[in-house]
Design a protein around this nucleic acid. Structure first.
Length: 359
DNA sequence: AAACCGGGGGC
DNA sequence: GCCCCAGGTTT
């Protein structure tokens, strides 16, 4: 890359002054680096921050994470999304204790052998925690480098990702590669933003190809996403004679795996929502119910589809609830429901049900 | 290579 | 509404 050492220096100087005061930078250890990187995958720093504080408080060491019940980790993760990260975090912590004597590995192959650690996270840990020369390529780096070099490839392709990894590696300094990686990401987060970047205060604008032609927002080049489908979901609020509500646990193999929810499912064809509710409760639990009053519908967007969640008060007419797929069931009093980890859409029904959110 | 996997904030 | 975020895993 042209002006390589000048860009390195400008980035380092800028970062020395503008780096945010973040908790995993204050008391940095391999564990805090690992934990923060997992929490921040596809997650903005501002959103991950309270979760990081919670996790270092609940699980100060990798051993604490390894011996914790998984449900406890999922509960602490509740609301952050991409719950496979929490499941993998628990598995990886166990493996780190067993295979690596409780130390976060400092070898690329060892790190990548752990669940939840791919190329980005391995490079981040190796460079930031261990000072090794591995370049990171995250969303920020993609944006900064594609603008600097007017990179024309579609960054959603693996070929383009490889080229950007090479670019990032070329730009990596021998001295303090970890700080350089952090600086590049910090610049992407604070200055080189997706829309309306602050080029007038950017330390590397004079080296930026996109800025020189006034086309900052034309990079990175990426293909448009397909429109996402919408589904109606009907769930039953089933209450026992002693005022306990029936909830079930999602399987690990399902989306939102390991979280608890009100039983129900997706509307099929032209059936009514009440029919959906009755059919799903028969299929999943083997019970016939009387579907009563509806709760206020809740809209929610996932990454690849949208739903409207319809809750119905239901009364069992016949049968005893038994899961069709070995899902765990539980009858819970309202006061205890907040001890279970629920998906956000389910939680949006809590208020109307008189359930305390617990936070 | 492409699909799948959450939730929230900014515009 | 749409886009994007300190990406990884599965198919």
């Amino acid at each position: 890359m042209v002006h390589q050492s000048e860009i390195q220096q400008a980035l380092a100087d800028w970062f020395a002054v503008n780096a945010r005061d973040l908790p995993w930078r204050r008391a940095q250890t391999p564990y805090t680096t690992y934990l923060s990187e997992i929490l921040l995958q596809q997650t903005r720093v501002d959103q991950g921050l309270p979760y990081y504080e919670r996790f270092v408080r609940l699980f100060p060491t990798i051993q604490d994470l390894a011996i914790a019940p998984r449900d406890e980790i999922l509960k602490a993760w509740e609301g952050l999304g991409y719950y496979s990260r929490a499941r993998n975090l628990h598995r990886a912590a166990t493996e780190i204790v067993e295979r690596f004597d409780g130390r976060i590995p400092d070898q690329e192959n060892d790190l990548k052998s752990l669940p939840g650690i791919g190329d980005y996270t391995a490079s981040a840990i190796l460079s930031i925690a261990y000072g090794q020369p591995f370049a990171v390529v995250d969303g920020n780096v993609i944006r900064v480098l594609s603008r600097l070099t007017t990179f024309a490839g579609d960054v959603n392709t693996s070929a383009a990702r490889r080229q950007l990894k090479t670019l990032a590696t070329d730009l990596l300094p021998d001295d303090n590669p970890g700080a350089h990686n952090e600086a590049l990401m910090e610049l992407g987060a604070l200055v080189c933003s997706p829309r309306s970047p602050s080029c007038e205060i950017c330390p590397v604008s004079k080296f930026c190809g996109a800025y020189s032609i006034g086309r900052q927002e034309d990079f990175p080049v990426k293909t448009k996403k397909r429109p996402v489908p919408h589904y109606d979901i009907a769930v039953g609020i089933i209450t026992s004679d002693d005022s306990r509500i029936l909830i079930q646990k999602r399987l690990d193999t399902e989306m939102l795996g390991g979280l608890w929810e009100f039983p129900g499912g997706k509307r099929e064809g032209a059936e009514s929502l009440k029919e959906t509710c009755a059919r799903e409760l028969m299929e999943e639990l083997g019970i016939t119910v009387d579907v009563g009053k509806a709760l206020t519908p809740v809209k929610h967007a996932y990454s690849h589809f949208k739903i409207t969640l319809h809750g119905f008060y239901c009364t069992i007419e016949s049968g005893e609830p038994e899961s069709d797929a070995g899902r765990q069931l539980d009858w819970v009093v309202k006061e205890n429901i907040s001890k279970y980890a629920f998906p956000s859409a389910n939680r949006m029904l809590f208020d109307e049900l008189g359930i305390d959110s617990g936070d």
